[in-house]
Structures are given as structure tokens and as C-alpha cells.
Simulated scan of single mutants.
Amino acid sequence: MWADWFKRNATKVIDFLTRQRNLGLKLCALSASLLLFGAGGVFFEIEYEGNRFKWGLTDEPNLLLATVVIVLGAVGFIIGLIIVTRVHGQEHKLSEIGRVIVVELRGLVDTSDRPLISAIPAKFVGQRIDLVKDVRKFLTGDSAHLGAALIELDYLRRDLQVARGDVSREHVTVIVGGVLQVPLLFHVGTLIDDEGNVVLFDWNRTEGRWNELMVEENKEAFVLEEDEFNLANEVVLAVSASYLVDIDGIKRTFADKPLVHLRLQNPLPNTIWGVQWQNALTQQFLQTVARLGNKRVSIIHLVLAAPASLAIRFGRAYDLRNMPLLRCYQYEKESNPSYPWSIQMATASKPAQRVATQDF
């Protein structure tokens, strides 16, 4: 309890200390120092003696210098106040007209005691709108209820439009995070692909709280491994980002289909927290899907082991119009087959739908 309180308040202090500084406040502080300096009548005295300079403080006020310093300080202070007033006005206007829409997806872990909206830092300015999509009631027991979960998630586009209202996209930030089955996370990504400024958060399983992705340099790239094939209508694309996919389970489930595998050297959970890193991995995924499309592959069976934020990011990058039909699979270790069902992404003529592996 005390540890949670300390972490929460320490985060607020860090956000305050690392916030973007206001130029007007800096100018006011500098100008106030000049005013005090001039009013006190204490100045530096510089003398030249032979071939060296001598400097120090003098207690005898120089009226001309004092006047110049005071005037500069007063002018700077006034300009600083003008800047502060304008910035404050802009921030107030943005807080009035802006929207911070927080989309929390609940499907596996109950995060209701630590909602995503409570973890959003103060740097996101605007009216905060809590948009929770809880589909747990549809996902308990038999996966036949997946259709109802898909319908509930498909309302997300409409709900985002209602929450945004008549506010222009430039004033809207959509923050998304969730603990949900991977196929549904990928599907959600396709639903928010054109929502403008989207910021992804992830659930930190170690600490049991929401974390924003960090700004950090790219790390390792995917290693590409693939079966040789010339022509194939259907291909399995496996991605090992947070875990190593079950290769034996893939071979049992998709016995007659060639395998293309993108993997990190040592995939581990709770490690991919960098925005740039995720963007680089997404670019590799996108290029691989496009390359398969160029080879006339018509259906991609996607087996994805990745953190929620990366699964959503992949879904946002997937082009429903120009890329092969894609089915994203759910992994169930004790099931036979190991990948018993998938979500087939929407097309121009059909909405997203559940597909049982035994049906093909």
C-alpha cells in the first residue's frame, strides 16, 4: 500500500521536474535577478593592469550601469509576463477544447482497481474521457462467444467519434492500453489505424501497473527464417517478440503450409518498452507481409507472441485494402490443435469474424 502510494507520488514529482519549461517563466526569473542586481547597486569592476585583467566586486554604485540593468530587467520581466500569459491562455484553451480519450481494453486481467485513466500523466492536456471496453463476460468458457466480443469491440470506432465530437483531430489524443487476447488486440489496432495521435500504454506485469512506452533507441531487429517456397496460396507468419512461438504446435496445426518466422534472438516478456524499437519491428513486419503479398500469397495465418502494445501497433500498420487476407491466431498450450481459433480481419465486403481452425 505504502509502496504504491510512494511510486504514484514519485511519478508525479518526476513528471513535474521533467516537464517542458515555459520560456516566459525563465525570462521572468532572469529579469528578476537583473532587477535585484541593479537595485542593490553591486556590480563587477574590471580593470586592466599591464598585460592582465583584474576583476572583482565594487560597493560604489554606477548610476548609469544601474539604470541600464534595471531597465533591461523591467523590459525582460514584462516580456516574460506577456509570454506566460499567452502560454497559459493557450493551455487553458486546449484544456477546454482538447480531448484525451482513454481506451482501456479488459479481457484477461481485471485492472478495474488500477484503471488506465488514473495512470495518464499531466502532460496530456485536455478533457479526459474514459472509454472502457470490457469483454471478459464474452470470453469465459467456450470461445463461441467471440462473436459478441467482436461486436462490442467494433463499436469502438463509433464510440471514438462520439467522444471526439466536433473537435478537430489535432486537438485529440487517443490513449490505448489493454490486457486482451492477441487476436483481439490486433483487431483493435485495425479499428484505430486512422485515429491520428494514438499513444500506446502497456500493462507492466512485474509491477502490476500501467506504463507509457519510453523514447529510446532501436535495439535488435527481427531475424528472418523461412521455408523455401515459390507459389503458395496460404503461408504461416510467426512472430516471436515476447516469447518464442510454439514451432511444434504450428507444425501440427498448419502441417501443409510453409512457415515464415520473424524472431528476436532471445524473446522475453516485459522488455519491449521503446517506441522507436516497436516502430522498427513494425516496419519489418509490414515489409514481410507486403513481400508475401507480392509473392501472390492470398491468406496469411499470423501466429503472434508479442506484448499488447506491439500487437495493437501491428494491427494499425496492417493495410486491409492492399495486403493479403490475415487471420491472427490464439495460442492455447493444452489445446489440440495448439492454435484452435483465429480472428479473420475485416475486408471491404466482410466484417472481422472468428474462424475455427478445424473449419479449414
Rank of each mutant, 00 (worst) to 15 (best):
residue 87 V to A: 08
residue 312 I to G: 15
residue 259 L to D: 06
residue 324 P to A: 04
residue 210 W to Y: 10
residue 224 L to R: 13
residue 159 D to A: 11
residue 281 L to F: 05
residue 122 A to Q: 10
residue 232 A to I: 03
residue 342 S to M: 10
residue 240 S to D: 01
residue 208 G to F: 00
residue 305 A to N: 08
residue 111 T to S: 12
residue 89 G to C: 04
residue 57 L to M: 08
residue 76 G to A: 06
residue 240 S to L: 09
residue 14 I to Q: 10
residue 221 A to N: 05
residue 95 S to V: 05
residue 325 L to C: 06
residue 304 L to G: 03
residue 327 R to D: 02
residue 342 S to V: 07
residue 129 I to V: 15
residue 354 R to W: 06
residue 40 G to P: 01
residue 98 G to I: 01
residue 288 T to R: 13
residue 74 A to M: 07
residue 327 R to T: 03
residue 294 N to M: 14
residue 89 G to V: 06
residue 52 R to K: 11
residue 141 G to I: 09
residue 301 H to Y: 05
residue 221 A to T: 04
residue 239 V to M: 03
residue 178 G to R: 08
residue 104 E to R: 14
residue 311 A to R: 04
residue 200 L to V: 02
residue 263 R to Q: 13
residue 104 E to F: 09
residue 25 L to T: 15
residue 306 A to P: 06
residue 97 I to P: 01
residue 116 L to W: 06
residue 122 A to N: 13
residue 2 W to Q: 10
residue 13 V to Q: 14
residue 97 I to G: 02
residue 155 Y to I: 08
residue 66 A to E: 11
residue 351 P to G: 06
residue 93 K to C: 02
residue 283 Q to W: 09
residue 318 Y to W: 15
residue 50 G to V: 01
residue 186 F to D: 02
residue 223 V to S: 09
residue 284 Q to R: 13
residue 96 E to D: 11
residue 287 Q to F: 06
residue 264 L to K: 12
residue 30 L to Y: 04
residue 269 P to C: 07
residue 99 R to K: 11
residue 121 P to C: 09
residue 121 P to M: 09
residue 317 A to R: 12
residue 307 P to L: 02
residue 2 W to C: 01
residue 345 M to P: 02
residue 31 S to N: 04
residue 266 N to H: 15
residue 112 S to C: 10
residue 97 I to M: 01
residue 149 A to E: 00
residue 85 T to C: 07
residue 98 G to H: 08
residue 114 R to F: 07
residue 314 F to Y: 13
